[in-house]
Structures are given as C-alpha cells and as structure tokens.
Amino acid sequence: MKPQANTTASKRIIATISLLSLLSSVTPLHAQERQWRSGEDLYNKVCGYCHKPEVGVGTVIQGRGLPPEYLTIIVRNGFNAMPAFPASYVDDASIVELAKYLANLPAIPPAPAGATP
C-alpha cells in the first residue's frame, strides 16, 4: 500500500501549523471551561473510536509523544476525511490533557501507511 498523495492538503496543514503554532505559543485561543473530564475520557469518547490500534480507521496516535500544539492543529483543521472539532466540542485544555495521556500509552509499531490521521 502507498501513502495517499495529499500534497495540497499537506501544504495547507503546514501553513496553518506555522500560523497557529505562533499564536498558541503566545496565548490560548480563549479561556473556557473544560469539556472533558480527562485526556483519557476524550480519547475513549472521541479520538479512540478511529485511532485506537485495534480499530484501524485512523493512524495510531498513542505512545508517539505528539505535542499538544500538533494535536491542536489537527483537531482544529481536520485532515483529509478526519473531521475538524471546534473549541466548543474539544477545548484547548483537554487537548493538552490528551497529549499527556497519549504520551503515557505504550508505543505501537506503525500500521501500513495510508490511513487518515
């Protein structure tokens, strides 16, 4: 299997990452209450439905040390078929907790390329 050719989408993501990394390093997008009890809760109730290793719809994200800034970009923009989530659905603070939770899960050998993130 070959990775999908997503050149335009990748450029768009990279451009947005550059812009939002700058912004998110200065201040949170806006103060708000947490929508999720914990990173584990968010993973189990949303992300994991596609990204858990045993599901196989999206790329495995656990145990990879993905930084919250990166996760925020993907969550807010989506990627290919992955939907985007606004802050009303997944708030910034919960993404930080998600990153911590995922970092503590064991790494899984990469699946064949081609899955949506």
């Binding site: 999908q4 439905y49 596609c50 196989g56 719809v57 989506g78 990627f79 290919n80 078929a81 899955a115």
Partner: peptide
C-alpha cells in the same frame, strides 16, 4: 452501541471527499 468503524469507507479512495 456507538462506534465509528464505518469511517473506514473514507480510506477506500482517500483524500477526504464524500
């Protein structure tokens, strides 16, 4: 019982159009 397994359809051709 909730699941999102059917999103696997989007990987058939890839590229996020549906």
């Amino acid at each position: 019982v909730p699941n999102l397994q059917e999103f696997g359809l989007y990987n058939w051709r890839g590229g996020g159009g549906s």
